[in-house]
Design a protein around this nucleic acid. Sequence first.
DNA 1: CGAAGCTACCTAAATACATTAGGTAAAACT
DNA 2: AGTTTTACCTAATGTATTTAGGTAGCTTCG
Lengths: 190, 190
Amino acid sequence: MARAGLTADRLTQAGAELADEVGFDNVTLSALARLFDVKVASLYSHVTNSHDLKTRIALLALQELADRAADAVAGRAGKDALVALGNVYRDYAREHPGRYAAMHFRLDRETAIASAGVRHSAMTRAILRGYDLAEPDQTHAVRLLGSVFHGFATLELEGGFGNSSPDSQESWTRTLDALDALLRAWPAPD
Amino acid sequence: MARAGLTADRLTQAGAELADEVGFDNVTLSALARLFDVKVASLYSHVTNSHDLKTRIALLALQELADRAADAVAGRAGKDALVALGNVYRDYAREHPGRYAAMHFRLDRETAIASAGVRHSAMTRAILRGYDLAEPDQTHAVRLLGSVFHGFATLELEGGFGNSSPDSQESWTRTLDALDALLRAWPAPD
DNA sequence: CGAAGCTACCTAAATACATTAGGTAAAACT
DNA sequence: AGTTTTACCTAATGTATTTAGGTAGCTTCG
């Protein structure tokens, strides 16, 4: 009986790939066991349970995306940085829909705080340095950008925009234009 | 043996309430059967399977929210209408998180086309009549508004904004202000 | 190099949900 | 009242999760 050589990391990685193929909700320990040609119970030596596996996939995705984002915004500022960051989010969601969904798996507070999730808001805040926003407006803008990026990616993925004209790429470009214009002329409260 | 008096509608309604309590993903036929003190197999006389039940809950939510939205925007225009529509979405997500999640259950194309989902985009388009946007910009704006509403509601629900200052109500108000300003001064493409 | 210990993987069993096939009794209709 | 319809049932199968306890392969150290 040769061993399969499983580790938590290999399971997480395989789980992430599986998520992209069949959807995050359909990532099961059973499916992973089949993949590695191993009995299900054996996986419990590596992850504590199904929830643990999903948490690990979520953390993987958060980190992967944070890395990409950091890379994309490095050396850019203003609209250039905004577009780069937005594209990283949208492209990741399209290339890795399962991992993207995994990122919104509910983490307990400690795990969330220790996760790469914090880097995401930090980076969004960073690109706002190219615009002239003082607190608390900066925080409002961070939340708005997060909402648009996440909302657009989600709706586009689930086909909420239809597949008719104008195509969603066009809408995305114009959305980024609009956000840039908005941030340059951020309105005072009414 | 007195009968429970089940119908597809009663199951759907109970399923929607259950979704709000335990989350849409945790709505199971088993749980519903327990609720009505009936054997699980009995439910298959009323819904064809679990997927069917979830579809029905999704349709219920879409319709319920479309009704509320229609009510809210009636007799309003411009920013007034924008704020009303935005609030309907956000409030529904907070009051009925399970149903809100249900709305994004993937429907097959026919079902989606026959659903109240189409009323949603129609209403968003309607409030844009208060702003001066010609096609295809109007479609881009519809998609942007959808993204912001959905993204904000989702992130707020899952605690993505933290519970620190400034509170999310404040960000929401400012987001609506920002959208209004943006729509009034919609930028031309670069 | 061989014994000791660690651990990766196993079998077995309990629990839960989804689904189908085929039966019985309550309601509805004539 | 008799017949049809149907709401609900029992029984059985398949799949996923999880725990308890065992065995064989790898590592380590005398």
